[in-house]
Amino acid sequence: MGSSPIPERRGAAISRLVLWNVDLTLLDVGQVMRAAYAEAFEKVTGEPLVYLTSSAGRTDSEMFFEFCARNYVDIEPDGEILSDFLATLEETFGRRADQIPAKGRVMPGAAASLAAVASMPDTVQTVVSGGTRANTTAKLVAFDLDRYLDLSMGGFGSVNYPKSSLIQSIRLHAAGEGGRVYGEEETVFITGSVPDVRAALLGGATPIAVLNDSATEGQLREAGAKIVLPELGDPRAVMTAVHQATPK
């Protein structure tokens, strides 16, 4: 990673956690990801991946078993086959990493908004991603977005837990051994999907919704988002939203 504006956490009083969804909030590499899913699924199950499923709010672990159900693949839902799939997915996606810049894109305003939030005092930002740590990191590195994020404390789909549990885990462990738990008034999750808004509320974070995904403002508000941004193109508006969501 390049030179980073991530604040030094050792000995510093970090009072605000800003968590970002990755896919369709910060970037879109769906074309590359779908090809990797298809290859990994067929390698592990021996069956083609014909019917996909929505990735909104889901981890790769959850998606694998839904892929199996939708494609009528009869497997035992155990940890061994899931581990094989995730490892194979990292391999199939890793071989396509050089395609990310050409076939993917950064969502409008994402880089500027990450930089703006990184400049806020007493703030640390990381990701809550449905993808594995390796694949998520590759996506962010491809567009130089990792420089604004502390990925060491992120939540990833490498483990078979829903996003709400990943958010809880970050809140519990962000302060390190013996540290306090960050509350909802100190933690925000920025996302564009309805399931993620619900995951934020279950995980103890205030959702800040962005109209980057297919969800409407009404759907996001009905799910529980009190702050809805039209886009990330106005970094000042993003900073204001983070301040409003973390008033302490």
Rank of each mutant, 00 (worst) to 15 (best):
D213C: 11
G157R: 04
G30M: 14
L145V: 06
V73W: 08
K248V: 06
Q31N: 05
D144C: 02
G183R: 14
T53H: 10
L145P: 02
R133I: 05
L52T: 13
M1F: 10
I6A: 11
T191D: 07
V124W: 03
S165Q: 11
Y161R: 15
L24S: 11
S15A: 15
Q125A: 06
D213K: 05
A138W: 00
Q219M: 11
M107V: 14
S214H: 14
L172R: 15
E39V: 08
P48F: 06
I100C: 08
A134R: 13
G218L: 09
T126F: 01
G224E: 08
V210D: 03
R221H: 09
P195W: 11
G154I: 03
G46H: 13
V22G: 02
A97G: 01
F67I: 09
G192L: 07
I6W: 03
Q168Y: 04
V188D: 02
T187K: 09
M33D: 13
G204P: 06
T92K: 10
V141W: 00
F189G: 03
E185A: 12
D150P: 03
L26M: 08
L89A: 03
V32P: 01
F85H: 04
H173E: 09
G131N: 15
S193Q: 13
A13E: 15
T25M: 05
L114H: 04
D122R: 15
R147G: 01
S164K: 07
G203A: 00
R221E: 12
Q99S: 12
F64H: 02
F67P: 01
A200E: 03
E217P: 02
S193K: 00
A38V: 10
L26I: 06
S113L: 05
A241M: 08
A205K: 10
A237D: 09
A215F: 15
A116H: 02
G192Q: 09
A215H: 13
I208A: 03
N21K: 01
V106H: 00
G183E: 08
D150R: 08
E62W: 05
G224L: 03
L86I: 12
S83R: 15
T216A: 01
Y182V: 00
S158W: 02
I14V: 15
Q31E: 12
L17G: 01
P108E: 14
N21P: 00
R34H: 12
A38H: 07
C68G: 08
T137S: 14
V50K: 13
E222Q: 15
Q125T: 07
V29G: 10
D234E: 12
S169F: 11
A237W: 02
L149N: 05
P5W: 10
E39L: 11
S54M: 05
M120T: 03
E80P: 01
A225K: 08
P7W: 10
A138S: 15
N21D: 15
T136W: 01
I100P: 00
G154E: 07
A209P: 00
Q99I: 00
D74T: 13
A138V: 04
L17S: 03
V29W: 05
D150C: 00
L82S: 11
T206G: 01
A97V: 14
G192D: 04
E222M: 07
L229I: 07
G192W: 10
A134L: 09
P7N: 08
A110V: 02
L26F: 10
L151Q: 03
A209I: 03
P247E: 06
D122E: 15
Q125V: 02
G178A: 10
G218N: 14
N71F: 06
R180P: 12
P247M: 05
A35E: 14
R10V: 14
R198N: 02
V141M: 08
Y148D: 02
